[in-house]
Design a protein around this nucleic acid. Sequence first.
DNA 1: AAAAATTTTTAGATTTACCTAAAAATAAAA
DNA 2: TTTTATTTTTAGGTAAATCTAAAAATTTTT
Lengths: 220, 220
Amino acid sequence: MQSYTEENYLKTIYHLAESTTNVQTNAIAEQMQTKPASVTDMIKKLADKGLVDYIKYQGVTLTEIGKNTAIDIVRKHRLWEVFLVDKLNFKWDEVHDVAEELEHIRSVELIERLDEFLGFPKADPHGDPIPDKNGRFAKTQFIKLIELKVGDSGTITGVSQHSSAFLKHLEKLGLTLGKQIQISDVTDFDGSVEILLSDKQVNISREVAKHILISSNGKN
Amino acid sequence: MQSYTEENYLKTIYHLAESTTNVQTNAIAEQMQTKPASVTDMIKKLADKGLVDYIKYQGVTLTEIGKNTAIDIVRKHRLWEVFLVDKLNFKWDEVHDVAEELEHIRSVELIERLDEFLGFPKADPHGDPIPDKNGRFAKTQFIKLIELKVGDSGTITGVSQHSSAFLKHLEKLGLTLGKQIQISDVTDFDGSVEILLSDKQVNISREVAKHILISSNGKN
DNA sequence: AAAAATTTTTAGATTTACCTAAAAATAAAA
DNA sequence: TTTTATTTTTAGGTAAATCTAAAAATTTTT
């Protein structure tokens, strides 16, 4: 059994490991709003518990057990987000912080029943896949909107940024999950992208385009 | 903002204050499965924060703020219990421990929406009243089954013991909330009570009878 | 009202998760 | 390949919540 803090470290390492093999101390510290020295302390503890593999100065990787633990927390986080949106009518930009607390509630029974109550959802309100109770989930084949070329089209199926500010912005522009879009133009000057969204032209900054995930359904 | 631990102390003091004016150190320690020395430490802290009034060797009482905080935690606990039973099909003897964790989730919005989602319930699965968002709730006029006389009848509307063992036992005997009962006999020897429950005779020990709460609807 | 028993508090330690400041290792630049 | 910069670790310390053992206050009993 891990403390909330340990769980948060494991989750952070898990997410960081999606883009690098060896997760670095500083990256963890930045993500967790703490100091590198504190991270080193905790990493040692997690290593002692067999949840991470750790070589001094080389960063960490999750062990099998550590990874499963992290995935379980991610599962809980995402299921709670679905609950908040589907049942309690929260908006997708309001759920993150509460789910961040709820994910630590320890009851296998609770989560299994919640999963059932929600109808075994496959994705959370941001399009992220929800692992099943064995930790399995489909590797999603998303492409970042920024990587599409003029003429390409697809469906918005996810976002890679969960901040309220970002999500509210998307909402305002009408860029919500499930919407069909097509790239009409990419501005050389600032890299902003002009997209066609149900007969309407919408311009989004490069920064925004980086965090919208598309399931591509047709090349130019 | 209080720590989980502080919240648990406040809640415990609140419950103990239902039967005594000044809550004693040892009583808190016993209830919280900790040592009196730890209780003294925490009481000082709560007193510094203005949540309890404390005179050395004289026990504590909750201040207005402390009481409101405690009531809010009780509200959350009971709403979560309703959620677990009504929505996730937990049994009444399975909810206590999970609710004990859920009650600490800090989000006013979450609780208001949960309350609404559940249809603003007035009582939890054990018959305990749920305070509204202003902390108000009806003082319940329960009488302990043990205090009834032969011939008295009433409805089971609550229990004053939430342990799984006790609740499972009641379940087995058919003594659940809403059931009509009448006292047919009280045994001199061991104080056990013979009751009439929908044309069936059921015998319960004095210990059990102490923890069943009846809303009396007729004297002998 | 003294003696005995109980309750409560104090004093001093421990553990967890942090921190700062300085040292050590690694990586990047000259 | 040195020098410089960056990253990471170590050393030593703090605050929260706990503990044990002993002292102090209160209550009960004789």
